[in-house]
Computed example of a mutant assay.
Amino acid sequence: MRDPVSVAVKRLPHGLDLPLPNYATAGAAGMDAVSAEDVTLEPGARHAVATGLSLAIPEGFEIQVRPRSGLALKHGITVPNTPGTIDSDYRGELKVILINHGSEPFSIARGDRVAQLVLAPVVQAAWNEVSELDDTDRGTGGFGSTGGHARLG
């Protein structure tokens, strides 16, 4: 197992008594983040849920904000821009954009787990403009070109 990467975290006044994001199990890839506010999401509604935290992510990393699978399956609550990206140079409050795809209002209480945070390395691209690209078996075949779900058997 690799050594953990240190991420500076600042508790904001409305998050002083809340737990820091943490891993639920030793093998977990994502840390559970909790809400620092009470909010009800009506069906179809979106809201940037406050966490009461701001971060200094090391250069060369990002934090990906991902939905919690149980909220998505049981209630239709998800992160609409999955995965959301928190860049290393952002210093504002970490907020989790949630949307209610369910048919009922969904209440979030302060302290409820609302998302998972995954620390991930970032590699920046350097564009190399060319006049032609190399050929592949797939070529320009796009959406569905490798077969539909029936092909999976």
Rank of each mutant, 00 (worst) to 15 (best):
S6Y: 07
K10T: 15
P13M: 08
P13T: 12
H14P: 09
L16K: 14
L20G: 09
P21E: 09
Y23K: 08
T25V: 13
T25Q: 11
G27S: 09
G30H: 04
V34T: 15
V34D: 00
S35W: 10
A45G: 00
A45S: 09
A45W: 00
H47D: 05
V49D: 01
T51S: 09
G52V: 12
L53A: 01
I57W: 06
I57D: 09
E59Q: 12
G60V: 13
Q64L: 13
V65E: 00
R68E: 03
G70I: 08
G70Y: 07
G76P: 07
T78Y: 02
T82C: 14
P83M: 04
P83Q: 02
S88G: 08
R91F: 15
R91M: 01
G92K: 03
E93Y: 12
L94H: 01
K95A: 07
V96M: 04
V96T: 03
I97Y: 01
L98K: 00
L98N: 06
L98Q: 03
I99D: 00
N100D: 02
H101I: 03
P105W: 05
I108W: 02
R110L: 12
D112M: 07
D112A: 11
Q116G: 10
L117Y: 09
L117E: 09
L119W: 04
A120C: 07
V122M: 10
V122H: 02
A125K: 01
A126T: 11
A126L: 08
N128W: 06
N128G: 06
E129G: 08
V130N: 02
S131T: 14
E132A: 14
L133V: 08
L133Q: 02
D137V: 08
R138H: 14
R138W: 14
G139E: 03
G142H: 03
F143M: 15
T146S: 15
G147L: 03
G148C: 05
H149K: 13
A150M: 09
R151F: 12
L152D: 13
